[in-house]
Amino acid sequence: MKKIGYGQLFAVLLLIKIFGFVCSKSIYSIEQMAGVFISTVAQAIVVIPMLILCNSNRVNLKKDVPLGKVGLAFYVFFFVLWGAISFVKLWDVTGSISLPVKNKVFAAFLIAIVCLYASRLGLKVLARSAVIVLGLLALALAVMFIGAYSKIEILNLVKNENSESIWIYALNDFCESGELVALLVLLNFTQSNHKKGVFSYLTAKLVIIEFVSFIGIGVTGHLMQLIEFPFFEIGAYTQPFSTQRADSIYTILFAFLCVINITVQIILASVLIEEIFPKYRFNEITSIILMLIISVAINSTGMDLSLIWGGLIVLLSVIAPLIMYIRRKINAQVQNA
């Protein structure tokens, strides 16, 4: 597979994080902002073993991942599950913000076709597209700021009685950071300057989330407790033009983020399937079909996967890379001896 630059790595990671943020129902508050900051600092520490592993020598996915093919299967399961959860989020959001989607399954099917096609073009093409979508994200944030500037009330920036504790928000943010798991695979396909790409992503993600949260709290005040999807509602509250609503920018952005997010999962899952079953030729199609099936199952049963999801992220982005790092250190010492 062709390698991507650190700027493209930055774009891909940021967009998949922002998709999760856009689809979040968690209310914005001072405690949430503090929690996100703590979580980002923790993530900056967690990525260090991955960066060391990839800097010194590429990660051999087949050999280095703990438990070999079984370990790789865990990663495949994670990316397929992530794609399925992304479809569930798509349905959740479209149902709430009154998008003209009459048939949910058909809409998901169309998105799946687009993502399948995009995944067949490869990671390099996706990464280039991600850089372009980054421009759209910047435009959406600029429109939001222009509309919010005169509406922000500093008196709204106060503790929220209905808010959880800072540590709960920190834990929630960390356990929703699936891009940490994606990072381990993506770093293998990044040419150089891994540190730059990763730490730029962490900084940009923190800045954007705090920026949008600040605007949301400042503009909505008491209304935050009534809001279901804060990102979209803030878009409605911060219209820059009196004659025209700018909601379409956020809708278009959401569609692009959804496609890029699911396409990344398909690509990562198919790369790992290839490591497990080198002769299997239908990796992408299998991944997307499994995603759709699991998403329908989650949606119809209303399963809450937050515990499993958080556990997988901790296992695959913290414990597994740590084991890989320790094993490599031990092997190096044994070889030197």
Partner: peptide, 13 residues
């Protein structure tokens, strides 16, 4: 006002 504002049916402004 809560009902009218739900799902961004009307503009908050």
């Amino acid at each position: 006002l809560e009902i009218l504002l739900s799902n961004s049916r009307i503009s908050p402004s």
